[in-house]
């Protein structure tokens, strides 16, 4: 079974028509489109300090040197490229599915992760809204299991109502016999 094979001609065509179309295994729900802009803002905020740092270094340390401006240019171009290219690609590959017995979350572009959490293993649940979530009207569902590794599964980019509904749905399934 190969449910992540997207290299069909049909797919390429639809991609040309609608580049923001989610790129997910069949049957999976995409994240809210607003999540794309949340990611863009987040990446901008992450890279801004680096750009400022590069500008400072260029104008203080490297002032009057022949290489002045090179560092800022590199960081600036890198930042614009990342902000333009990355959020859309991550957004298209973020999806989730509530199966009868488990939650499945797929995410990631260069480093792709496909997570499955059986409901019986869930210890507790969070619906989290960070400041940026509030600006863009999204929420994250955070699922905690007893594991030491991968014990926290985060599903971002949901509408707050959907996140709360999913929490209640999973909550109803939880039994407390993980031992």
């Amino acid at each position: 079974m190969s449910d992540t094979d997207f290299s069909t001609l049909d797919h390429k065509l639809s991609e040309a028509i609608d580049p923001a179309r989610p790129l997910l295994p069949p049957g999976m729900e995409p994240a809210e489109p607003a999540y794309r802009w949340l990611l863009t803002t987040q990446l901008l905020l992450t890279w801004l300090p680096f750009l400022v740092g590069a500008l400072v270094i260029d104008n203080v340390v490297l002032a009057d040197k022949p290489v002045q401006g090179v560092l800022s240019t590199i960081v600036g171009v890198l930042m614009i490229a990342i902000v333009l290219f990355v959020p859309l690609r991550i957004y298209r590959r973020l999806g989730f599915k509530l199966d009868p017995h488990l939650l499945r979350v797929v995410r990631g572009w260069l480093f792709h992760t496909d997570t499955m959490v059986p409901f019986v293993r869930v210890q507790h649940l969070d619906v989290a809204r960070r400041p940026l979530d509030k600006v863009f009207g999204t929420a994250s569902l955070v699922v905690h299991t007893a594991g030491t590794h991968n014990s926290i599964v985060t599903l971002p980019g949901l509408s707050p109502e959907r996140a709360a509904a999913m929490r209640d749905e999973i909550r109803a399934e939880i039994r407390t016999d993980w031992q």
Partner: peptide, 14 residues
């Protein structure tokens, strides 16, 4: 005893 399963692949794995 398995709590969750991640299927991971990076761009080279793919």
């Amino acid at each position: 005893r398995i709590q969750s399963i991640d299927l991971k692949r990076n761009f080279i794995d793919r």
